[in-house]
């Protein structure tokens, strides 16, 4: 057990050090930020999908709630943006609490209901009648507190937090009880797992991570519209990244996001016309030939993936 914790810890430290040092050698901070963002979001999806099997197709709802929660706090209370990012995380948790009843749905029903919820939230935030609170369709302008470096290191902290949460779940009894629910709810509850409580906690942790990511994104980007932070593409990218790497592990989603997001940028930009096509085929191929992600190749070779 202890050895596994150490392995997880070394993964976390490695990632943190890389992102601390990289800006010295590579000047496109936005690329590094987006990469961290997707690493963090992929781990967030991992918490709920990897360990409980609920596919959060509307995950972007939490991301948007975090971005808006944080931006509203900055606009109205003029407190430190760092505190506001945490408040953004709390806003996402609040959203998560409202949506807890959705966890009664199973499989694809949950995924679609969650998607609908994220779109409903988007339409509420963007509605002209909400202008006094959210600026409605006019979008958010945080350029007065814009600080790219601070936003960058905040995102790094969020990423580390997300990895720690996943490492804990992966190696704790709590994680085991979540996996038991994933396997079979009835058996798990017979074995003494408090199903409702466990899955609700995982759900809120997952929401918290997305909210923090959203808050950091809002701060780093400074000017954004509702359609930016509630774009379905965020959900889709995140889920595909996590699946590609392999959920249920710490390293899988990191690997998936790193490989695919880098590819997205370096290959995708040169031949963008084939990109969506390529992505679609990748997803189909994944489901048919590698449903458990890249990590499963290693696991089949009896290699332990942290």
């Amino acid at each position: 057990m202890r050895r596994r914790y150490l392995q997880a810890l070394s993964v976390i430290i490695l990632v943190a050090v890389v992102f601390l040092l990289l800006p010295r050698f590579y000047s496109n901070q936005s690329f590094l930020f987006n990469l961290m963002l997707y690493l963090g979001l992929a781990e967030g999806v991992n918490i709920i999908y990897g360990f409980t099997g609920y596919l959060p197709f509307g995950y972007v709802g939490f991301f948007g709630a975090g971005a808006y929660g944080s931006a509203i706090a900055i606009t109205f209370w003029h407190i430190s943006p760092f505190v506001c990012v945490i408040l953004g995380g709390m806003a996402a948790v609040a959203t998560g609490i409202v949506l807890i009843p959705l966890l009664r749905l199973s499989g694809a029903y949950f995924a679609i209901a969650n998607l609908a919820a994220s779109q409903a939230l988007y339409l509420i935030v963007a509605n002209p009648t909400m202008e006094k609170i959210t600026q409605g369709p006019y979008g958010i302008d945080l350029s007065s507190v814009y600080n790219a470096d601070a936003g960058y290191y905040t995102m790094l902290a969020v990423l580390v937090f997300a990895m720690v949460v996943v490492a804990y779940i992966r190696n704790s009894d709590f994680g085991l009880s979540l996996l038991a629910i994933k396997e079979d709810r009835v058996t798990a509850s017979l074995a003494g797992v408090n199903v409702v409580r466990a899955r609700s906690i995982a759900w809120m942790l997952s929401a918290f991570v997305a909210g923090l990511c959203g808050g950091a994104f809002g701060w780093f980007t400074a000017v954004f519209y509702p359609s930016t932070v509630f774009s379905l593409d965020v959900s889709v990218f995140t889920i595909v990244f996590a699946l590609f790497g392999g959920v249920g592990t710490l390293a899988g989603p990191l690997l998936g996001a790193l490989l695919l997001y880098s590819m997205y940028n370096f290959i995708g930009i040169s031949t963008p016309q084939y990109f969506q096509l390529f992505y679609g085929f990748l997803i189909i191929g994944l489901v048919l030939f590698l449903p458990d992600g890249v990590a499963s190749i290693l696991q089949k070779g009896k290699v332990y993936v942290p």
């Binding site: 099997g53 499989g107 016309q273 990109f275 969506q276 096509l277 992505y279 679609g280 189909i284």
Partner: peptide
């Protein structure tokens, strides 16, 4: 497959991306 409901959901999503890309093309 071991989880037809979930995997089909994701697979058809991939198919939708392919179709959209082809129509744009």
């Amino acid at each position: 497959s071991k989880d037809p409901e979930m995997l089909s959901f994701i697979l058809f999503f991939g198919l939708s991306q392919v179709m959209e890309a082809l129509v744009v093309f």
